[in-house]
Amino acid sequence: MSAFPVSRRAALLGLGAAAALPMLSRPALAAGRVVVGTWGGDYARLLTKNIEEPILKPKGWEVVQDQASDAPRRAKVLAERRLPRGTVDIQGFSAANIYEIGEAGAAEEIDYSKLTNAANIIPSMRYKYGIGHIYSGKVVMYNPKLVEAPVSFRDAIDPKHGSKIGFIDIQYQTVMVAAALAAGGGVADIEKGKPLLLEAKKAGARLYPTNEAFAQAMKTEEIALGMMWKARGVQWQNAGIPLQMVAPSEGIPMYVTGFLIQKNAPNKAGAYAYMDAMLEKSAQDAFAIDMGFNPTVTNATVEAALHDRIGFSETEQKRLVDLDYAYLARENAAMKEWWDKVFKA
């Protein structure tokens, strides 16, 4: 739909021009401009490849990416919430951050009637303030040459492995959740897991600042096991890093990346168009192939061989555990303080 009204005379002139030049292709009508907040790197590139170029651009949408890590973008959204108009229409965040921003009054409550693909969304991926785009689960990864196959989070942080254990600093929340599950607690009962983490650290477990640094340590065999999202593990396997993965017996915490619409978005229609495009079967199928994450729509088609690598069996699916986002939002400051001042000390 054009962003400006078209007069009858202009329309007739346009039809006449088209008739005079029947062999020329007709450019798509300008639908508008939509600004997307996203991480950079592969994710941003694949948004362009699988959503923006093939689906939105032919419909006349001009997409502009506002790339940054989640922390500065989250701060920006919250800082702009009192403005009449924000600077971004739609933002990509984890489900935990979507909950936090929504509860802070900075995200639009999703009107699912505005999405033609709404009926295909997996129920657990329908949030009040956002929609899941892709998901994976936290698993135990290990080098079979260096350690016996673990079966649980408890095995992954057993002090007997000493300096062969690796933790990722930026994943402090889910590491603490995994340790809680290992100790018999739950996703909203992290205190039980703290002693296990301290025992592993005392035994020589190593801490890496980023996912990439952890991957490099696995590649060089500096470490032999740790915890990571299965999708990222598949990417690392594709890159030749020697690792295998196990769905932990205690439960598989889910990691969901999705999108929210800023409450003061300049172009909410564009934001809904972007959401609808990300839910298209073609886009969801492509992300499964390109990133190793599972689709969040029921009509996606993932080949059996790929599903075996990126997905979870029927038995494992019963162990998938969604995080308690209200708990994490409430306790995050205390969790970070313990992690920095006690665990990392």
Rank of each mutant, 00 (worst) to 15 (best):
A75L: 13
E80Y: 00
L46G: 05
D66M: 12
G105D: 02
A68H: 15
E52C: 11
E62Y: 04
N97Y: 03
V63G: 00
E80H: 02
G40T: 06
G41R: 03
E103D: 12
I51Y: 04
P54V: 08
I51V: 15
D89N: 08
Y43T: 11
A68S: 15
R81C: 02
P58Y: 07
I98S: 01
V64Y: 02
V64K: 08
V88L: 03
V63T: 05
A71P: 08
V77S: 14
K57F: 02
D42I: 13
R81Q: 14
P58N: 08
G40I: 03
I51Q: 11
L56M: 12
Y43V: 09
R74I: 11
K76T: 08
K76S: 15
W61E: 07
A104F: 02
W61C: 06
L83N: 12
P84S: 07
I55L: 15
A95L: 05
F93P: 08
A95K: 05
A75T: 09
A104L: 01
T38A: 05
R82W: 11
K57R: 15
E53I: 13
D89C: 06
F93M: 01
D66L: 11
L47H: 07
K57G: 00
L83M: 13
S94M: 02
R45E: 11
A104G: 00
A96E: 04
I101S: 02
V88W: 07
Q67P: 10
G40Y: 02
T87Y: 01
N50W: 04
R81P: 06
V64D: 01
R45M: 09
N50R: 07
L56W: 09
T87K: 10
D66Q: 13
Y99M: 01
P72K: 13
G92N: 13
P58L: 03
G102C: 09
P58M: 04
R82T: 14
D66C: 12
V64H: 02
A95R: 09
I55F: 02
P72E: 12
I55E: 08
I51S: 09
A95F: 07
Y99F: 05
E103L: 10
A68D: 15
T48A: 09
D70R: 10
I90W: 10
V77L: 14
A96I: 05
L78I: 08
A71D: 12
Y99A: 07
D89K: 06
V63D: 05
I51D: 11
G105T: 01
G92H: 13
L46D: 15
L56T: 02
R73T: 06
S69I: 00
L78M: 05
D66H: 13
S94Q: 00
L46W: 11
E62W: 03
